[in-house]
């Protein structure tokens, strides 16, 4: 089981959730941010499914935000990254960095 590890897309989602400002961290913002950075088309379904998995793994937490005027009075879900999520993201980065150092130190 993937459990404690992150898939590539999950990792990207986790990082994006940290990169997007906290108060705006909705599904739409994450999706838009990732499309911009990766220059790749992402379907909303994939983003939802990925965030669902991250939530199951305890990496992100979501709450329903305040009612705003823009969305016709409908609330949106705001994501925040948990301590566990930050740790997993850092772990993933450490592994990568270590490998890159080996490659470049040769």
């Amino acid at each position: 089981m993937k459990g404690e590890r992150l898939g590539e897309f999950e990792e990207l989602l986790l990082l994006a959730a940290q990169a997007v400002p906290d108060e705006d961290c909705s599904v739409v913002e994450i999706q838009q941010y990732l499309e911009r950075v990766t220059e790749r088309r992402l379907s909303l379904g994939a983003v939802y499914a990925g965030l669902d998995r991250l939530e199951l793994k305890g990496c992100v937490r979501s709450t329903l935000g305040e009612v705003t005027r823009q969305r016709g009075g409908k609330r949106k879900r705001i994501f925040s990254v948990t301590g566990e999520g930050r740790r997993l993201a850092r772990d993933a980065r450490r592994v990568r960095d270590a490998i890159w150092r080996t490659i470049e130190g040769r």
């Binding site: 599904v27 739409v28 838009q32 909303l44 939802y48 329903l64 823009q70 969305r71 949106k76 879900r77």
Partner: peptide
């Protein structure tokens, strides 16, 4: 449903 529909609408407008 409601949440997803409004997300989609949001994306559509953008």
């Amino acid at each position: 449903r409601e949440e997803i529909e409004s997300d989609l609408l949001d994306l559509f407008e953008r």
